[in-house]
């Protein structure tokens, strides 16, 4: 199939950037979206033009490196997948596709479609852990009993891949779904309860410092989240924060 692509091009962080139009032809419907961009880039290199820079790595939907706002949706129109899992059969011959970087003050553009998501790193560093040293002398793994339901719920929260689709899609650029997934995972496990109060306060404090917006519960994030992290996590975060604040 033949497609028209409108892609955000921006030389570096200081550049203003603009949308540039490209034509690609001979695209197979079996290609992944990123393979389609590979075809474009190969073509650009052959024409001595600068290829489009975009983030990607595992190309199987788990590393969280790929991003892209495709036709106004994070990771494109399909659901429960990342951009690398989006296939061209989702589009039709002759379509025009808009490709933009994830937008947020806390995710500044580095180049073209690549954004800086280290704000997520700093939030995790503020409290996204359990303070236990590696010793090999912690109690036996079966010494802590955890109900299957809690364990499964903690696992559901823990599947977050940190891609930033929630921020990109939220009209307020809020990072609440991301933060709440981590807070929830630990809040649901007995090992994580000990530091629960400090954790939630520190992580939210850092989130605010990074310049993310406020959650207004629109629910857009859970729709676009490639791992289906639900809004229940945000409610749990709010609960944890209230508990931590009243004490």
């Amino acid at each position: 199939m033949n497609l028209t692509l409108l892609i955000w091009r921006q030389k570096d962080a200081r550049d203003k950037g603009k949308m540039v139009k490209y034509q690609v032809s001979g695209i197979s419907e079996h290609m992944s979206f990123l393979e389609m961009l590979d075809v474009l880039n190969e073509d650009l290199v052959n024409k001595n033009e600068e290829p489009v820079a975009f983030d990607h790595d595992c190309r199987e939907g788990i590393c969280g490196m790929c991003s892209l706002q495709i036709n106004g949706e994070a990771h494109g129109p399909d659901r429960r997948i990342t951009t690398c899992q989006l296939h061209m059969r989702t589009f039709k011959d002759g379509d025009t596709i808009y490709i933009e970087p994830f937008r947020s003050k806390a995710f500044p553009v580095i180049k073209d479609l690549i954004v800086d998501r280290t704000s997520f790193e700093r939030i995790q560093q503020a409290g996204g852990f359990i303070s236990v040293n590696t010793s090999g002398n912690t109690q036996d793994a079966n010494g802590i009993l955890i109900g299957k339901e809690e364990a499964d719920m903690a696992m559901d929260s823990a599947t977050c891949i940190g891609c930033g689709a929630c921020v990109a899609t939220c009209k307020n650029s809020s990072a609440m779904l991301f933060v709440s997934a981590k807070v929830s995972q630990y809040a649901l496990l007995p090992q994580g309860r000990i530091e629960a109060k400090d954790r939630v306060k520190n992580m939210i404090h850092q989130m605010d410092l990074e310049g993310f917006g406020n959650c207004t519960n629109t629910g857009a994030c859970e729709v676009e989240c490639p791992k289906g992290i639900s809004l229940e996590n945000i409610a749990r975060l709010n609960r944890e924060f209230l508990k931590a604040s009243v004490k």
Binding site: W8, E100, S174, G213, G219
Partner: peptide, 19 residues
């Protein structure tokens, strides 16, 4: 504050798809 959190808007946005 929320407006300030996204200084550059999307050229194409499709919020109706998810909210």
């Amino acid at each position: 504050k929320n407006r300030a959190a996204r200084p550059v808007k999307y050229v194409k946005n499709n919020p109706a798809a998810n909210s």
